[in-house]
Design a protein around this nucleic acid. Structure first.
Lengths: 249, 249
DNA sequence: AAGCATTTGTTCGTATGTATG
DNA sequence: CCATACATACGAACAAATGCT
């Protein structure tokens, strides 16, 4: 009968600390050197424990930076109605938007087609970042038909959220008409904004939202950080909300 | 009045060749050197033409490899019912599956939970590649509850498609209960199977399919090549049952 | 912008205990 | 008892990425 190895007991100790909130998701664990001192073992033995935890996606290491507790991925249900702020609050995080651009300019061919406009019509471009609980989740790029939605720009500046801004200019509700999803590599600028490395996988969503009367009100592109977001589609999308599974054995 | 530049005429010539099928999606264009000889121009002029086409996403260049015609992304509608073979045929490509693994083994904790089994129950594992028109589109990994579906293994070996195999063992229809989507980087083995580079973005889908009586019949993971597939979700999916697509025999 | 300290990642080598045959 | 294989643990040095000044 073999005794259980030291590194396993280190794993259970550390995971216990995480479970009882001593180290929160996103937090940096002590360095390997510190751990090896704390447990009185060689650095390799501490590494072995961390490697095991990394294998099971409990933590992840960044060379030169440290070992971090994996953040539970942000669950983003997409159905007919998708509201970022609602989703964020539902998972207990503070939603936030950071505006990168808010301007009016003539639309290009793709945008014209999606919004059923003639090419060159003025559109409001709203580009920015969506944050949840302080960390950047997605990079969005939305285009609105300016003539159909007078005052939207001021409404967005005032309210921050798209849902409220649209309501303020007379669109009480909007639904997702069509969505196209692909995976893409992060460009250098996106990597900078989302604090990830260039080339890391992004989940790209291209969608058109319609108003209650069926006219398109938004053409939007969103790039979600692949390691931070899971889009969920439920068959009973209207129905019940699943409780998030946060169990860590 | 300036004459139209030479490179533009090269662009129209090449795009004509592509349009009339002389170069198919995914094909490698002649090298810059060959093009410059063929058109009797300097290599930089040919480069200018290729750069313009790359800008408009008609082709893409891979250093050291060549310039390739961009593959038209494979449109993959996901709704309640998702049938790969149907989707492939609808876009005019021959569907094909390549089996990497077909075996029975005890299930792990995740699989047990998804399929409502007790941990360690025997499950049928079906892993392979989905090809459309000869090119690999996705890497799939499916798990079926063996005890509930006796004879499924032979049915899969015989029929090739999951839909037909399930029908053969008494599951006339199945619907997608829940789907979770993320973007991930391709592992070295996946990159090999999908003929892409390691780390390239994949669209990962995790889903559970239910039989008509509501019991789970399949827990499946699929990794779609990001540059070759677009998942589409249309708003009009919830309502009526879609008639089977008979547009292409 | 360049340099420096910090931190993880990798690769040598060494030693020990345990199961196998 | 010996040979072998394997996992565990420790030590030292260097490489590479990161963050800070």
């Amino acid at each position: 009968m073999t005794r259980s190895p030291i590194w396993k007991s280190i794993v259970t100790e550390l995971e216990g600390d995480i479970a009882r909130g001593h180290y929160a998701p996103g937090d940096k664990l002590p360095t390997e050197a510190e751990l090896s001192r704390r447990f009185g073992v060689n650095r390799h033995t501490a590494r072995r424990a961390l490697a095991d935890m990394a294998e099971r996606d409990v933590v992840h290491a960044r060379r030169g930076a440290g070992v971090f507790v994996k953040a539970a991925p942000f669950d983003y249900p997409i159905g007919e109605r998708v509201r970022f702020s609602q989703n964020a609050r539902a998972s207990g995080r503070t939603p936030e938007k950071r505006t990168l651009r808010l301007e009016t300019r003539p639309c290009d061919a793709t945008e014209a087609k999606a919004l059923a406009l003639s090419e060159g019509s003025p559109v409001l471009v709203y580009e920015g970042l969506s944050l949840a609980g302080g960390t950047a989740i997605a990079h969005f790029f939305s285009v609105f038909p300016e003539p159909r939605l007078p005052g939207l720009r001021q409404a967005i500046e005032a309210h921050g959220t798209v849902t409220e801004a649209l309501r303020a200019v007379g669109v009480p509700d909007y639904t997702r008409a069509q969505t196209r999803l692909t995976a893409e590599a992060a460009t250098p600028v996106q990597a900078l904004h989302l604090t990830m490395r260039e080339g890391q996988p992004l989940l790209r969503s291209e969608s058109v939202n319609h108003g209650p009367d069926g006219t398109p009100v938004e053409y939007g592109l969103t790039w979600f950080a692949g390691d931070r977001v899971t889009l969920t589609i439920s068959a009973t999308e209207a129905g019940g909300r699943h409780a998030p599974d946060t169990s860590t054995p």
